[in-house]
Simulated scan of single mutants.
Amino acid sequence: MRTLVVGAGAVGGFFGGCLAQSGADVTFLVRPGRHNQLAQSGIRIAEAVGSEVAIPVLTVTAAELSGPYDLVLLATKGTALGAAVNDIAPAVGAETVILPLLNGMRHLNVLQTRFGAGRVLGGVCLVATELQPDGVIRQVAPGASIAFGELDGSASDRVRAVEALFAPADFESRVSETIVQEMWEKWFFMAAGGSATILLGGPAGAILAVEDGPAIIEQVIEQVAAVIAAEGHPVRAQARAQVAAALTTPGSRFATSLYRDFRAGRRTEVEPILGDLYTRALAHALDATLLGAATVRLRVSEAAAS
C-alpha cells in the first residue's frame, strides 16, 4: 500500500516513522528545510524512557509530488490544513483514501468538499510527542495508538487494507465502527484539558492543589460536555471517566499539546480545538464562559506574537 504521510512533525513523524520502520512503503511530504534534515539523519524518535532510533525515510516536497497514492495519512496541525489540502492534490487519485489525524471536526468538511466524501475516513490518534529543535521527535509519555474507520461505521475493504498496513508497526491500531463519536470525544478531551490548563496556568495537578481549583476544572468539563451534547454526540461514560482521571486526580501531570505549545511560544491550534467549539456553544446559546475565556487568552497571545 503506497502511503504518503503529510507532515514529519511530532505526530506524522512518529507514526510515519513507525510505519517505515515496519517495512511499509512510506513517503513523507515535507517542507524543503525538513526534507534536507531527514535526508541527512532520517526520522529520529526518542522514547519517553529509553533509547533513540534513526529511521531512513523517503521524502518529497510539494513541488516534486506526483501520484496517485493508495493512502494519504494527513498528520499536520490544524493550522496547516489549508496549505496541506492544496499540496496533496496531485497525490489523490480515484482510489486514494485520506485518513486525517487532526484535532476537532471541521477538517472533515474541508477534505470532503475538496476531494469528495467517499475518499475520507475518520481517525483519532493518541500520542504525546514533541518535535525538538534538533529534529528529534521525543515522546513525553509512553503509548501511542490510532483508531480509524468509515464515517458511516460500515466495514470496507479499504479499511481492512489500512488495518493490515498498520498491524506490524510499533503502535496500537484498531478499526472503529463508531469513529465519528470517538472523534467528538477526543475533541472533548482536548478542549476540556486545553481550556483548564491554558486558563488556569498549569498542569492539572497544580490546579487541583489550590483552593477552588477542582471546582473550576469541573465547570470547564461541564461546559465543554454540554456543547458536545448539543451537537448531537453526548460524551459516553467511559470517555467522561478518562477525562476525569486526567483532570481531577490529585497530583496529575496531565497537560495537552495545546498547553505545551502555548508555554513554548509556538503557534497553537486554538481555532480547531477551542474557537470552533466556542462558536458552536454560542450558536446553541450555552453558557461557555470558561471555554470562551481560554479561547480569547490564546488569541491574545498569538496576536501579540504575530
Rank of each mutant, 00 (worst) to 15 (best):
P203V: 12
A246F: 04
V210M: 12
A204N: 03
G232D: 08
G205N: 07
G202H: 00
V210E: 12
Q223M: 08
L208V: 10
I216F: 03
A230H: 10
Q242T: 14
Q219F: 04
A226Y: 07
G232K: 12
A244H: 13
D212M: 13
V210G: 06
A239M: 12
G213M: 06
V235F: 04
I207L: 01
V243M: 11
V224H: 04
P234F: 06
E211C: 11
G201Q: 09
P214Y: 02
P234V: 06
G202D: 01
H233S: 11
I216M: 13
I228A: 01
R236A: 13
P234I: 07
F254T: 09
E218C: 11
V227Y: 00
I217S: 00
I207Y: 00
P250W: 04
P234E: 00
I221W: 00
A215C: 06
T256N: 04
V210P: 02
V243L: 15
G202K: 03
S252W: 03
A255C: 14
R236N: 12
A206T: 13
F254V: 09
T256K: 05
L208M: 10
E222T: 15
P203L: 04
I216T: 15
S252Y: 05
I216R: 12
I207N: 02
G232S: 11
A204R: 09
A237S: 13
I216A: 08
G205W: 01
A255M: 14
R236T: 10
G251D: 08
H233Y: 14
F254Q: 07
A244C: 11
P250A: 03
F254W: 12
I221S: 00
V210K: 12
L208D: 08
E222K: 11
I216H: 05
Q223R: 09
I228E: 00
